[in-house]
Amino acid sequence: MSGSGRPESRSVHIEPEEVQRFCEFLYRRTGMSFTQGKRYFIDRRLEDRIAATGSSSFQAYFSLLRADADHEIEHLINSFTVNETYFYREDHQLRCMTSSLLGGIVALKPPGSTIRIWSLPCSTGEEPYSIALWLMENWPQVDNYNIEIVGSDIDTRALKAAAEGIYGERALMRLSRDIVSRYFRPLGDGNHQIDEGLRGSIEFTRANLIDTQDMLRYRDFDLIFCRNVLIYFDDASRRQAAENLYDCLRPGGYICLGHSESMSRISPLFSVCRFPDAIVYQRPEADHG
């Protein structure tokens, strides 16, 4: 069984009640919420998974899904999420960082002090480089502080690619031509390599989010981007990851999750902060309990 590829035959008919039942399940497992208005999107992916698993009906597939046979939940989530990453993805959170979060973070930091930002998982580097670019382009106080950006991932091949910083046109599609021309060097094969200074300023490390011992090495972050990874974990692992992230943040530090993720559904450790550009989660300044 494979999570990739699009089966040729799709003969299973899915009733509206089945879609509703499925959507409730998907919401409880992932927080992803789909309405009837997304029927085409849902049906297409459901039909693909039914065919890919050789299920004879929705009910047969749903039983298999609930039992998580052959990691079907992971395959399903993969089919419902956009795995491709690119520069300035979910840029409303980057905007929130410069318009709302950093103001609070530096309120108690004198100029010249350090701000620590973590991108986890960082995949092939698009996110930590995006944070760096966004800060340099959009935060007037960027020269007043030392900004440490760390990118971590469990996949060492991804980390190697992140350190090389070579990207195709699709990864750069959200960047203006001006930014591309100033921060990237064309390699002549359609790819671009990000500025050497930027590559040298970001630390790339291997980290396992649910390994408490491993996460001990990471502390005192002011801001963590941890997007689109918790949805892949089971409940116990999600909670452990949330507790690890809590320890990695400074009191008062913030965490940004993916658009379909909600810390409130995982752990009560964090406070919900609603800013104009994004909802983020904060480790309380003082632990009252």
């Binding site: 760096a132 900004i147 300023s201 490390t205 408490t212 320890d247």
Partner: peptide, 19 residues
């Protein structure tokens, strides 16, 4: 350049070991 490299993470955090 306002971006600084913090160096590789240490063996343990400043909160002490998980004993």
């Amino acid at each position: 350049m306002p971006l600084v490299k913090g160096g590789p993470p240490k063996g343990s955090g400043n909160s002490g070991n998980i004993a």
